[in-house]
Design a protein around this nucleic acid. Structure first.
Lengths: 368, 368
DNA sequence: TTGTAAGCGTTATCAA
DNA sequence: TTGATAACGCTTACAA
């Protein structure tokens, strides 16, 4: 075999060099001249052994760079110390952050993390769950589109595998979850907008039929508008991967009665909205304000910086994992954990334009 | 035990409900009234069986919602069909994207993905590698800080576990990797800047001692400046997590001889740079242009949109996985795959300001 | 076509 | 203190 070449015909992962068989506990035992039981005991610190024996075993293990196989260990122990994670997408910063939080907490507790993402594809979601179940994860932290109507969650219920939802806030089915109070959070956004003088407030949201979060946030938006005595502005429902929004927004932006602020049900949508407004020749926030929901970090870096309702994403993941691991302390009512949210001010959310300044801005933009 | 309460004293993952033992192949065999060998054969489609037997087995498996344990399977097969992934951070979109690419390719090939992230912490990196090795991953796709000086890679070499680097481009040690040609890519950026009239071009880069990518990109920047007959502008080395750059940049932005363009060695740095310039009262791109490196998607959405050298992140991950799985076809020289890059134009990179327009912009900004 | 049995790498029980 | 051995869930010769 050529150097650098690899045999692949055996279906195994290609090997840069011939990979010699990994050392097993038996190899260590042979080299140390003891039984495998002794090796196990020494390496695990269970049971006693004479100093010399311990030394022999450790030396042998070290020589062979022996690492106990978690497979063998798992098989024996009937547990894997592995947690499954399922997210719609790793490329949405809010999920990436929460996964990072799960990783932190899991590593701390000595758990491995098996990650799968669905890219909003139901078929992939089913296969991912199957894979995680076959891998005998001890529990799952996951975010689904709609926690009230999810085949995956039904499956988990059937096989009685513990799970904790992150971000989801189911309305009908009582399911363990960690989230913020989406309704209250959305109200906070609208109240701020109202305090800034906005009277015509629209909403850009993910499909209500597909997302419990979107529904909740819409409900909060609606309720707050009602409380403030404001009429609901236009609602634009968009699909998950829709990034070009200009043609969707254009119809609502004509005439003097157009909204002066938009609440986007998540930050990616907020970014797309700002982009679209800009493409339509409107200034953010001079003409129209925008506030997002999630609190992704890049929002702080862009210009205008993104005003957003901040969810503690990292804590969301870490907390969900901890809930899974330790169990909720209370009973049923304790099966939900609400994390605190904050409103992060940003340049994208400013005071409502007065009629005169609005006209001014209008002139400025038609010039260019 | 209370409903919703969970036992945790046994050290197991908390259970929302009593989790009955998962069905094994023996349970299925018993229920179907056949031997476990028959169950295995039927479910794997290996060997023959009468239609009735197959039916019985499938029914029993379905009734018990039996899913073959990959643990038992792996142990027997002495292979895991699992690939390890190690990235510095899941929250940097460029890594998140490449992980997504790995996931895609792995799922396609029937592999599971075990992910660990280091958060640029060497201690965590060591532990992560240990964990992946213990889990008997068949190979690794990973991105390290400096592929020329990495204890983790040395470990992998020692145990002869196949791996492919993603993004890294080692200079001295020949190691399998998938990347873009960082030097050529950086040259392309500088050439574009030069073509736009920029004569004083600075660089914001990650620490050279810590990052092979940073070194390569700096080399390309330097070479291109030389070719264009331009003097090297200021170089600002920053740490991984540094996001506040204003005070670092300020000293270089005084006087008429200040740079009119900055090349940032990655997109997160580019965003931080734009932010800092803005904080310093400078307009991007009217006063100073900025171009990043990576091609993260959010760059398109912000305003000004980010000009950047696009690496095919998703393909980077997918290709690295494929290289790992199938092996590089050639010999040693084939152990590197170079992916194509493109320069994505963006509003952050414009023509160099003329002296008069520069003064104008100066006035405009001191007003506000 | 189907069943018996060995073995994968551990840990744990029980003897010695 | 140490060793022989069974067991975990599965696949796969080999035998019936």
């Amino acid at each position: 075999m050529v150097r650098g070449g690899m045999r692949t015909g055996d279906g195994r992962m290609a090997e840069g060099r011939a990979m010699d068989r990994v050392a097993t506990i038996r190899d260590v035992a042979a080299r140390a001249g003891v039984s495998i039981a002794t090796v196990s005991r020494v390496l695990n610190g269970s049971g006693n052994a004479t100093p010399e024996t311990m030394e022999k075993v450790r030396a042998a293990a070290s020589d062979l760079s022996f690492r106990p196989s978690t497979i063998g260990r798992n098989l024996k122990a009937a547990r894997t110390r592995t947690v499954g994670v399922l997210v719609p997408s790793l490329t949405n910063p809010v999920f990436a952050e929460s996964v990072a939080g799960i990783q932190d907490a899991a590593a701390e507790a000595g758990y491995s993390v098996l990650i799968a993402s669905t890219d909003y594809d139901p078929g992939r979601e089913v296969r991912a769950i199957e894979g995680l179940l076959s891998n005998r994860v001890e529990g799952l932290v996951l975010t689904v589109a709609d926690a009230d109507r999810s085949g995956s969650l039904d499956t988990l219920d059937e096989v009685r595998l513990p799970y904790v939802l992150a971000y989801n806030q189911p309305e009908r089915v009582p399911r363990a979850h960690v989230s913020v109070d989406n309704v209250a959070a959305s109200r906070a956004v609208v109240e701020r907008m109202s305090a800034l003088g906005h009277r015509r407030i629209g909403m850009i949201a993910g499909r209500f039929r597909q997302s419990d979060r979107s529904r909740r946030r819409h409900a909060g938006w609606l309720a707050a508008l009602g409380d403030a005595g404001l009429p609901p502005g236009p609602v634009v429902e968009v699909d998950f991967n829709e990034t070009r929004l200009a043609h969707r927004l254009a119809p609502f932006l004509e005439g003097p009665e157009r909204p002066t602020a938009f609440f986007a049900s998540n930050d990616m949508l907020a970014l797309a909205t700002i982009r679209a407004l800009r493409d339509l020749g409107l200034s953010v926030p001079d003409d129209v304000s925008v506030c997002g929901f999630d609190g992704i970090e890049v929002g702080r870096l862009m210009a205008p910086s993104l005003a957003t309702l901040v969810q503690p994403a990292r804590a969301m993941g870490a907390t969900a994992f901890e809930c899974l691991r330790t169990g909720f302390s209370g009973e049923l009512q304790g099966r939900a954990v609400m994390l605190p949210f904050t409103l992060r001010p940003g340049e994208s959310l400013g005071p409502a334009p007065s009629t005169s300044s609005q006209a001014l801005s209008e002139r400025r933009h038609t010039q260019s």
